[in-house]
Every structure is written in structure tokens, then in C-alpha cells.
Nucleic acid binder design. Structure first.
Lengths: 351, 351
DNA sequence: CCCGAGTATGAAAGCGCTTTCCAGACCGTA
DNA sequence: TACGGTCTGGAAAGCGCTTTCATACTCGGG
């Protein structure tokens, strides 16, 4: 009854945080008849406080709908409880998913993510890192940075770092392997297993670390099956639809012979799909195609795309966990699951 | 033991903030031989200060590499210079683009966006609004909220709001029209202009404000051309690929007759595309299909999708500008550009 | 019954910046 | 020369919280 009423009201207040226009820790202290320090101690569990005071304070907190001011808290503690997440494009389909899972992981530990995008430009990336730093983030997660290692190393002196797609040795840095090499191998091995011998590679932007690793995986797979590599079978895209489209066209006009294509990401693959279609080539009857990333849309292309799948959920949460462990001084053991191949309808055995 | 504890704690602090520039406004003041207040005044331009002191301070700032601590600043000013942006899914292709442009617009005015996702669930959305509020954002941009108007109205009492896809009358709220109705009309008008008479509608989730408006546009277009509406021509999707796929299948198995389909968003349309393909129906020869949103991928579907295009850049920046104007008390005049139809290859005249 | 070891709690000192308040310098005018 | 007014810039009081330091107070052993 009474309690029920109070409860629902409280909930509403909290919901709007309307409660706190002026409710401070001090007012709670006054209401509870204790000192601010005691309230703080109770709220943070930083010291033992007698049962009755705890009750009094909790009651006051509930009654006033007190919500600690994180800004003041940050200032006092010297930590902002927010961590910067810089990716290259917040609106990229693949990274979008990863960001969503980072958000989830961070929030769970009550850190707030601050997203920023580097747009594949060193300068932009540097600028937004500066911005995050000025906002006093407690750590930065860099999703496939394009900055040089040395720069990152010195950045690590200012703030703990989690980064993907590269190895930088520092106690304040955790590197997450995104399995580009084994993923690419998986794809190409599969094609080879299907009897394909002449497999083209539709690469990502040169210099882009991910792209380089996927290329390496492609070459490694060929090599381990003793298939000769030919640079004529390689076309450079830029990870976009249009890049994939153009690269495919180029491959087609160059008259090289191939029966399968491994595209370094799904966006390229989808562009390639259209280019093939325009040439009257059927997938998979004439050409087999494998992508990388398993975008949500890739299950709905025509035909549905066979592609390398990684659990973005796990990736993102691993990144978030790694960061939190790093910050809180716990040992960080980024575990990760291996990539798998989502076999759909864009591939078939050769001949 | 005791010492060990202290030490590890110390280390932890260093890890967070310790190593970074301990250069504060006060140290700048000292270096420049003036008082902190003067430095603050110069930095913020809040009062007139003599030329020589300005020079001295600027020199000191440059020399020490002083970067004001935004946390302290927020606490003192009572404003955080950050604004909350809640969308339903940070990883949705369409909203992703909008978020990117909001980020740009906000950053330009040196506000920081704080993104959060509601996942189309009232509860989640409420929770993340709470979170943003507790972080003391200066305003909140809600991209197609699913919360009731009354709730938003009372939220507006706490914090200025910019919201899309609905009308809520309040001086502290700016509503941005995302042109769902005219956009949908555009699409359907086009199909009608092409001679189609039986046009199916592949809707979004019921109750979703955007979806409702797009549906309205569909009906309005039919009506204005005196085409009779039939509920049998309407299938409900959920804005996802698979939803579109299923809805299309349902439409197909229901044996209604139609020559064209208007899908309420591109993801649905792409799902529908596959469903049609599976049935051996060709687009556009057998069925014309129009989408909505013009996702980057939509130019690369097979066939490339005719779809309603809106300038996400402008939308996002308009939202950002509106928010900033609202906060800074300037009159906000959200201007917007009309949607256009990107005519590609998924449509053709009837018969 | 007293003394030292704990312990629960309050007072107060920050965290780094903004802003109010006030004193002194400087100007013009009578 | 004196007086009101205008400026400039320093001192200091916050912003709301954490944390150290100090102070009563409890308890058990000698």
C-alpha cells in the first residue's frame, strides 16, 4: 500500500531523473542525520558503517530519489568512467555491430562508451583521439587504427589502449586478434576443397591492416595447397560496394581465367555480385564467390553469400572486457572464438 | 601488506590519469604570473583582460600544453557539453548514417555525442535515457523514440529534446519531420504513374511511428488516385531482411494479385527481393519493387533497387543544429530537404 | 581500572574550473 | 585637487563528490 505507492512514484522520478534537480549527497546526509562522508561510504561500500545508519541513508536516498552526480564523482576520483571507442566509420555495417556489442559490454560494467569516427584518415583519427583525451576518457579502444605503431605506443603512455588488428607490445596495451588470417584461410581452403584452382582475390584498400592480413591468409592458403599465386588474379577494392564492383569489372575485362573469387569483405563481394550479374555470369554456376564478415544483408543477397563469419558480439564484448580489465589492473586474457564459414549459395564445386 | 596495498592502488591511479598532463589552470596561472581567474577569463573570453596578460597566458598555455579539464569545467558550469543521442540500433544501416552526421554536426559546435541504443524496447530506451541523464547531458536527441508522448513531454521538463517522427508541442522540444509520409507517397505515386494498379505494401512493425507514417503515405497515394485499398495487399514486416522475406512469402502464398510492391524500408525490400527470386518471380519483369531509405547497399542489389532517398547528412546535421540552438536559446528553424526517388532497375511500367 | 589497539563517524581538504565580489588603478570633470 | 565612475584582476566561494585525517568510543588484556 504505502510502500507500493512510494515505490512506483520513485520509479517514475528516477525515470526522469527529475528527482535530482537539487538532491545532492549533502541533502541526503542531512535528511538521514549523518555526515556526507558517511553517505559516500555507504554508497560506495568503502567502509563499514553501522546498520542503522545504512538504513537511514538508504531510506533518505530512496525518498529523495538521489542520483549521484557522475561529473562531480569523476572530478573527485580522477576517473571519468567513460571510455573512448574510435572506429573508422560508425555507419559501417560490420563495425556497427561490433560497436553495439562494445556498448553492451561497457555498459554492463557501468562504463559509458564515447564513440568517434576516424574515417580512415590519420588526421581525423588523431583529432578524435585528442578529443577523447581532452574528455578524460579512462581508456581508448581503437578498432583497426590506421596510426603508426610508434604513435600508438606513445599514446599508451597517456591512456590504456585496446586495439585490434595489430600487435604493439606494451603493458598498457591489449591487442585483440580479429582472426583475419585464419578467416581468409578458411574461405580459400574451402574453395580449394571444392576443387577450385584459379581463385581470384578481391582485396581491400592497400595499407589497411585488416586488408593486408586477409591477403596474407589468401596467399597462405594457396601456398599450403601448392597452388601458384598470380598477381593477375588480384584486384584491389576499397571495402565498399562500388570498390568491389569496379575491382570485379577490372578482373573481368582483364580476361584472366578464374572459377572462384574470394572477396576481402562482404561489401566488396556484394558489389562484385552485381558486376558479375551485369556480365551475364551466374553465381555460383559460372563463378563461386566467398565474402568476409557475414553482414546481416549477406544472407539475403541473390544468391545468398557464402562468407566468413565471426561473432561480432564476442569480439565487441572481448574488447570491452579487455579494456575494463586493463583499467582495473586485472589480468586480461582476451579469449576469442574462431571464425567459421557460413556456407550459403554463392559457391559450388568446380565443374 | 599495508604498503603493498597502497602501492597497488597508487599504480592503479597512475594507470588512469596519473601519467597524464598534470598541467592545470592554476599552473598556467603561475607560469604566466597571473591569477587563475584571469586565465579562466582569457580562455573563455568572459571579460576584458589587458593585452600583455593575454599574451603571457597564451604563451604559458602553449608552452605547458594546457588542456582544460572538461570534467571540472562541467561541474563548475553545470553543463556537460555533451548531448545524448539515442537511436534504436547503432548498427542499423540507415540510422548509422544519420548518427554519423549527427556526430559531425555536434562536434562542429564542440559538443560531444553520447550514443545509446534502445533496441526498439521501451524499457531499454527508458533505461538508456536515464543513463544519459545521470551523465548530465545537456540535451537528448531521440531518433524515432518508441516512448509515449506524455512521457517525452515530462522528460522535456528535465532536458531539451529533439525528436524525430512525431509531434510533441513544448517549447523545449523540437520535432524533426523525417518526411515519411511524403516519401511514401512519392514511391507509390511513381508506381501508379507507371501504370500499376495493384500495389502491395510491405510494412514495418506495427506501432512503430515511422512505419505508421509510411503506411499513411501509401494509403494517401492510393486514395488520391482513386485506387481501392485492400488489406489483403498489406503484409507486416519488421524492417529487417528476414521480416521482409517472410512478409513477401506470406503475400505470395496468399495468392493476392499484385504487380508492384512498396516496401517500407530497404532492408525489407531486400528480403522481399530474395523471396521473389526464390519463387521464380523476376524483378522488375514480373513484379516491380520500391524501397525506402536508399541504403548504400541498395544500389548494388540484383537488380539495383528503386527507393526513396533522403539526405541523411542533412537530417543528422539538422538534428544536431536544432539541438544546439535549443540549448543556447536561439530560435531553431529546422530546414529540411524533400525526399527524392532514386530510380533504378527494380521497377518498370506495368505490362 | 588503565592503556593501547581498533573502529565507526565527522570535519575538512581537495579535484580543476567558473564566477561573484571587491579592491585598487585610472579616467574625466568640476 | 578632489570625487564619482569605469576597468582590471585577485581572492575566495562554490560545483558535488571522495578521501584523508582526527576524534570520540569500544573493547580486551595486564
Amino acid at each position: 500500500m504505502q510502500s507500493k505507492l512510494t515505490k512506483s512514484k520513485d520509479k517514475a522520478r528516477t525515470a526522469f531523473a527529475g528527482s535530482e534537480s537539487a538532491v545532492t549527497l549533502e541533502s541526503v546526509a542531512k535528511a538521514a542525520g549523518v555526515s556526507p562522508s558517511t553517505v559516500s561510504r555507504i554508497l560506495n561500500g568503502t567502509a563499514k558503517v553501522s546498520e542503522d545508519k545504512v538504513r537511514a541513508v538508504n531510506a533518505a536516498v530512496a525518498k529523495l530519489g538521489f542520483l549521484p552526480n557522475p561529473v562531480a564523482r569523476s572530478l573527485a576520483r580522477g576517473r571519468s568512467m567513460s571510455i573512448g571507442v574510435v572506429s573508422q566509420a560508425i555507419d559501417s555495417p560490420f563495425y556497427g555491430e561490433a560497436l553495439a556489442s562494445i556498448e553492451k559490454g561497457l555498459l554492463r560494467a557501468s562504463y559509458t562508451p564515447m564513440f568517434a569516427s576516424g574515417h580512415w584518415r590519420e588526421e581525423d583519427e588523431r583529432r578524435c583521439i585528442d578529443h577523447l583525451l581532452s574528455r578524460r576518457v579512462d581508456g581508448i579502444i581503437l578498432i583497426t587504427s590506421c596510426l603508426p605503431d610508434t604513435w600508438l605506443l606513445s599514446l599508451a603512455k597517456r591512456v590504456p589502449l585496446v586495439l585490434t588488428g595489430r600487435k604493439v607490445a606494451s603493458p598498457r596495451v591489449i591487442c585483440l586478434d580479429f582472426d583475419h588470417v585464419p578467416g581468409a584461410r578458411l574461405a580459400v581452403d574451402y574453395l580449394i576443397g571444392q576443387g577450385h584452382k584459379r581463385i581470384a582475390f578481391l582485396g581491400g584498400p592497400t595499407g589497411h591492416p585488416d586488408a593486408v592480413q586477409r591477403y596474407e591468409g589468401y596467399r597462405a592458403a594457396l601456398e599450403s595447397h601448392r597452388l601458384t599465386f598470380s598477381s593477375r588474379l588480384v584486384a584491389v577494392g576499397d571495402y565498399t560496394y562500388s570498390g568491389g564492383f569496379q575491382a570485379m569489372q577490372q578482373l573481368l575485362t582483364s580476361k584472366v581465367d578464374f572459377s572462384a573469387v574470394f572477396a576481402a569483405n562482404d561489401e566488396s563481394a556484394q558489389g562484385a555480385l552485381l558486376a558479375l550479374h551485369r556480365q551475364g555470369l551466374r553465381v555460383p554456376q559460372d563463378i563461386s564467390l566467398v565474402g568476409f564478415d557475414d553482414l546481416p544483408s549477406s544472407a539475403y543477397t541473390i544468391p545468398p553469400l557464402t562468407t566468413v563469419h565471426r561473432s561480432t558480439d564476442q569480439i565487441g564484448e572481448a574488447a570491452a572486457d579487455a579494456m575494463i580489465n586493463l583499467i582495473e589492473g586485472r589480468p586480461a586474457t582476451p579469449k576469442h572464438s574462431s571464425p567459421t564459414l557460413a556456407i550459403r549459395e554463392s559457391t559450388r564445386p568446380w565443374r
